[in-house]
Design a protein around this nucleic acid. Structure first.
Lengths: 194, 194
DNA sequence: TTGAAGTGGTGACTTAAATCAAGAAAACAC
DNA sequence: GTGTTTTCTTGATTTAAGTCACCACTTCAA
């Protein structure tokens, strides 16, 4: 149950609204705990992403594989983040992404239809969804700006926004996530020490 | 009034819901028509973006100016798009962007507080907002993928998504929007002709 | 109608970052 | 504890794209 406590706290904090006991029961009834071992896939390219997961414990990476067989990480996800391919999840189209557990992963998962229900029935859930959408829109704007950033600037931004990622994830994944080769990132870190 | 007809059509089409006569009156009462001449600013860097505009006619660019004085276009906007700096508009913080009319521009504009009211009172408006949020989230995901795209790939993507932009906007703006120098874009187009 | 500003094209050169290759160091498995 | 992946670093080379310089063509304003 402590899984759900953290989840409820998250919803209330983000939305600025309280969950009633009924709300909590509804959520508890529909969100299923799921555990994935390290390296296990939450989603494989070509499948429809039927679930959205709230990360209780652990981390995951979302990545694509290009024609040359190179992997590109789009996103690293940790506790209290939502895990899904939104495009596939919303539109029910086959996903172009893979989502893989990087550590022992524990999530609370639910389906699109259930989420629709929560949005209708739970004011705090719907308010949370709106806040997340707002943040997403703002983040999307910021990312447009980042087109012209140099490798150093992209790295500095990550350091200031997600400093704990540096300890948690190997450098080659950080590099991939920033769209850099791991050699370049290694050199950037060396220069930054001066 | 025909301005509003197009606006109502847009809301109904995107949301999949109909607007009642009351809904329409509420919108008509609060959205103000505003015209900007070519080169006029809708928003200047440092100001809070108090308004959101729905473009009825014309186009605009959202851009920043870096330390070296170079302009970077983040977005080109045309008819039936929303015009605002979402970060500044939602959070009431000073904007880092400029928004300038590229052609004679006609918009329907409203404030944050009014939008909140529409979201509460007009189901079609709220449904529209949700659909736009969904699309935004999907677009944000796609943009993450684009980190590793080459100049050619970025250009090809624009050609397939927004072919009419090529006629409508000068090449140097398209280039800036793609994060390329105009020389590079010129060379890409030359190669593409083969 | 004639500058002036804006736009687009091309060549020469520079630069940032990728790629290739090889070792060192750390983490993990048995 | 020893071997085996995995991760990180460093150097040499290549490549994509930026920068600089210049010219041609159009549009537009006075």
């Amino acid at each position: 149950m402590s899984n759900f406590e953290a989840f409820f706290d998250y919803i209330q904090k983000i939305s600025g609204k309280l969950l009633s006991e009924d709300d909590k029961h509804l959520l508890t009834a529909h969100f299923k705990t799921r555990k994935l071992r390290k390296r296990q896939y939450f989603l494989q390219e070509g499948d429809v992403c039927k679930y959205i997961g709230f990360i209780v414990k652990g981390s995951a990476r979302t990545f694509t594989v290009d024609e040359k067989g190179h992997e590109h990480i789009l996103k690293l996800s940790v506790e209290n983040w939502w895990l899904t391919d939104f495009e596939s999840f919303y539109l029910l189209t086959p996903s172009r992404f893979n989502i893989e557990a990087l550590e022992e992963l524990e999530i609370l998962q639910s389906t699109n239809a259930e989420i629709e229900e929560f949005l209708k029935k739970i004011p705090a859930f719907s308010a949370m969804s709106n806040v997340i959408s707002q943040n997403n829109t703002i983040a999307a704007q910021k990312r447009m700006q980042a087109i012209n950033y140099s490798a150093e600037e992209r790295y500095e931004e990550l350091v200031s926004n997600y400093p704990h990622f540096l300890q948690r994830f190997p450098q080659n994944m950080i590099a991939s996530c920033l769209g850099l080769s791991s050699e370049t990132l290694s050199r950037i870190k060396k220069n930054a020490l001066k």
